[in-house]
Amino acid sequence: MSKKHNPEGYRKHPHLSELNKKVNPERMTMSTRLKIRESRLNKGTGASYEKTFGQHTHRWVAELMLGRKLKPTEVVHHIDGDKRNNKPSNLMVFSSQREHLNWHKKHDNRYGGDAI
């Protein structure tokens, strides 16, 4: 909705999710999610981050590495710069965007640091 018609913005109503589950319990089963995922897989240009079930795959892999959910402020960095390479050995987790930027300032020649 536009701000003109909804100046307060979109508000999520938790009760609607519960209502949808009651009205149509078979709608988003795991098999349905897998079918949707397969139909969309490899259809893009590869210019953005890969997603798994609507979540950026690199964040999902980082959560598995850490054994916990990532905090909203945590940033996952791709060491080799390839945003499609989600191997655990290629990922670093920073506690904040500031910490991530400081790493780039030290190590990335685009930010004045030494190239790796």
Rank of each mutant, 00 (worst) to 15 (best):
H107R: 05
E50W: 00
S48L: 03
H104K: 14
R68A: 05
Q55D: 10
D82W: 06
S48Q: 09
R27F: 13
M65Q: 04
L34M: 09
L64D: 03
L64T: 06
T73N: 09
I116W: 15
P25W: 01
T29A: 04
V23Q: 08
N90P: 05
S17C: 13
K87P: 00
T73M: 01
L101H: 09
R37V: 05
M30Y: 06
N85V: 10
G81R: 02
T32K: 15
V61A: 09
V75L: 01
V76Y: 01
Y49R: 14
M92N: 03
N90Y: 03
K3F: 12
V76K: 05
D108G: 08
K12P: 00
L16R: 15
K12D: 10
T29F: 06
S31P: 01
L66A: 01
E99Q: 06
K83P: 05
R110G: 14
K3Y: 13
E50K: 11
F53L: 13
G113Y: 12
T52N: 03
L66N: 05
E18V: 05
R40G: 04
S96Q: 10
D114P: 00
Y49W: 02
Y111L: 14
T32G: 01
K4F: 09
S39H: 04
N86M: 06
A115T: 14
R84F: 00
R68Q: 10
K105N: 12
D114C: 12
K83H: 12
K106F: 01
S2A: 11
P88M: 12
W60S: 13
R59V: 10
I36C: 07
M30L: 14
K83Q: 07
P25A: 01
S95C: 07
K69G: 00
R11A: 15
E74F: 00
G44A: 06
E18C: 02
H5G: 04
G54K: 09
S95T: 07
L19N: 07
N102R: 13
E26K: 14
G44R: 08
H15P: 02
K35M: 15
Y111A: 12
E8M: 12
E63F: 00
Q55A: 07
E63L: 04
N20Y: 05
K71G: 02
N42Q: 14
D80W: 04
D114Y: 14
I79Y: 02
R98K: 14
E38H: 08
G112I: 13
N6D: 12
N24S: 11
H13Y: 14
N102C: 04
M30F: 11
L101I: 15
G44T: 08
K22V: 09
W60M: 14
S39G: 11
N85H: 08
N20G: 07
H13Q: 13
N42H: 12
L91E: 01
K71H: 11
K4N: 10
T52C: 00
M65T: 08
T29L: 08
T73L: 01
T29Q: 05
P72S: 13
A47L: 05
D108K: 06
W103A: 11
H5E: 08
V93Q: 01
R98L: 03
D80H: 03
E50S: 08
S39V: 02
S31N: 11
W60G: 02
D82T: 04
H78W: 01
E99P: 00
K69F: 02
T57E: 07
Y49Q: 06
E74T: 05
L16Y: 15
S2D: 13
Q55R: 15
D82C: 09
T73V: 02
P25L: 01
H58E: 04
Y10L: 09
N42W: 10
K51R: 15
M1N: 05
N24Q: 07
